[in-house]
Design a protein around this nucleic acid. Structure first.
Lengths: 107, 107
DNA sequence: TAAATATATTAGAATATTCTAATATGATGG
DNA sequence: CCATCATATTAGAATATTCTAATATATTTA
């Protein structure tokens, strides 16, 4: 019943566990609305694939969308998402640096 | 060559995208070393399955391990991992609360 | 050194994810 | 109101993940 929170948490992390979606989040990190066609141009992704990734993030509540004329604009729903992105990225660079240090430790 | 930073980032998030691993991280969040058998008792996981999950997190540099007598102790490698855990959890509660608010907004 | 204990590895079936191609829906300008 | 542009959905093959059962390895105690 209540242990489901871990499954929800895992489901949210699943959204972040794909390189294409992370690139999209990075594109959207300014918090502004960006149209699908704009993102298609700047990423070079196939139209269907892009739309699927956006749909996944929308379903999970990571992105909000709003129709504006003939376009649909997407934006990040909560700035904490960008915070999480940055912390995980910094864990990654920490661990890359630690590995570097160990490699060069053969003095 | 330089394996895309976004792919590495995604691979790290993949570790967090499983409810069992998140429960284990929560167990380990005190930063202390915990033995496999202790975790097995407190989680009720099968031995092989637990060992596999620990192995995945160790390989990705999320956990460190150290043999201590007949046991192997695991601990979280970087406190930022716990920070990321907490931020994502709080995005989740934000979004649950937002949903609640919308449901009760029928005035 | 043999037996017991603690942890790791392997194999494989069940399930889930990702991408592409084809098609559908929905809005707008002419 | 129809032709076009923007986005969404579907189907399905290729690939990846997860769990269980069986087995292997490593450490300690008797």
């Amino acid at each position: 019943m209540d242990s489901d929170i871990y499954q929800l948490h895992a489901d949210m992390c699943k959204v972040f566990s794909n390189a294409t979606r992370l690139k999209l989040l990075n594109l959207l990190r300014d918090g502004e609305g960006h149209s699908v066609s704009e993102m298609q141009k700047s990423t070079g992704l196939g139209q269907a694939n892009l739309s699927q990734h956006l749909g996944i993030m929308r379903q999970r509540g990571i992105l909000l969308h709003e129709r504006k004329g003939r376009n649909v604009l997407y934006r990040i729903s909560n700035p904490k998402i960008t915070d999480a992105f940055d912390i995980i990225r910094s864990v990654l660079t920490d661990s890359i640096n630690a590995r570097e240090r160990i490699l060069h430790e053969s003095r």
